[in-house]
């Protein structure tokens, strides 16, 4: 009896989802799974059993998502469609009949998984989640699909036009703070360069002497330009395009950044 009990447990690694996933999402899933068990007829559940079933639910969700995303990618799409989702569900479910036979008929409704879902949604009792969840915690901007949940950079309306696969824009205020300390050598700005060198010698910073007028390998500071002769807009034009920095033809280099203390 004991061997029978231990055998299936040995096959399952302990559910590691709770530690790797965010505890919040896992706890919410556990509540939903507990509600499902309650609706079926269970009066109580052991904590390990409920945790395991929750882990299975999470893995099921992720398997569907991964399969659908792979299907969409193999078809040359970035966004999954109904076909991908149905194929993923069909792959994961045990349907009677021939799997993938619905592809030949051309109708998604012939999929056994979809038919089961239709009957399930028609005849099962509707049990809403215990409490409504705040939506903005998970995603913002429905028009663009799902945004990256982990990074909060694009939350708040600004930067919605930026594709989410782009790296995060550096924070400008911090750059200016750093720029005040860093010496930036840009092109052949002779006088400023000499002044800068004198300042360096005064500060006995020997690291910068060998570099001369070469551009630094890593440009961390901000360089400002003047458009036109004298007056004009100061600064890099950021609003000319989507996510692009527009360079103007006639500009005067104005060095603003100072040496950065490394």
């Amino acid at each position: 009896m004991r061997s029978n009990r231990n055998r299936p447990l040995a096959a399952i690694p302990p559910p590691s989802t709770a530690s790797t996933e965010s505890d919040y999402a896992f706890t919410l899933t556990r509540i939903a799974v507990a509600q499902i068990c309650d609706s079926i007829g269970f009066t109580a559940a052991e904590a390990p059993a409920l945790r395991t079933l929750t882990d299975v639910a999470v893995r099921y969700l992720r398997s569907i998502a991964k399969s659908a995303a792979d299907s969409a990618n193999s078809a040359g799409r970035t966004q999954s469609q109904l076909v991908d989702t149905v194929a993923a569900m069909d792959e994961l479910s045990s349907v009677s009949g021939f799997a993938e036979a619905w592809r030949a008929t051309g109708s998604l409704l012939n999929s056994g998984a979809v038919k089961n879902l239709v009957s399930f949604s028609k005849y099962s009792e509707e049990i809403p989640f215990a409490k409504p969840l705040p939506r903005k915690v998970f995603s913002i901007g429905r028009g663009k699909g799902l945004l990256n949940v982990d990074s909060n950079e694009y939350i708040g309306g600004e930067g919605k036009h930026i594709p989410k696969w782009l790296p995060v824009m550096p924070v400008i205020e911090k750059e200016e703070e750093r720029g005040g300390k860093r010496k930036e050598i840009w092109g052949f700005c002779g006088k400023n360069e000499e002044m800068g060198r004198e300042m360096k010698l005064e500060k006995k910073d020997m690291e910068w002497e060998g570099k001369g007028i070469e551009l630094p390998l890593k440009r961390g500071g901000k360089v400002r330009f003047k458009i036109g002769n004298g007056g004009g807009v100061v600064g890099v034009c950021r609003r000319g395009g989507i996510g692009k920095r527009v360079l103007c033809e006639s500009w005067i280099c104005e060095e603003q950044n100072q040496k950065k203390s490394l």
Partner: peptide
């Protein structure tokens, strides 16, 4: 029973965009 937000969260983590 499983709320949409939760499903979106897990789907988004696995690369499902829709």
């Amino acid at each position: 029973t499983i709320p949409d937000e939760l499903v979106e969260h897990y789907l988004g983590k696995s690369g499902f965009q829709c």
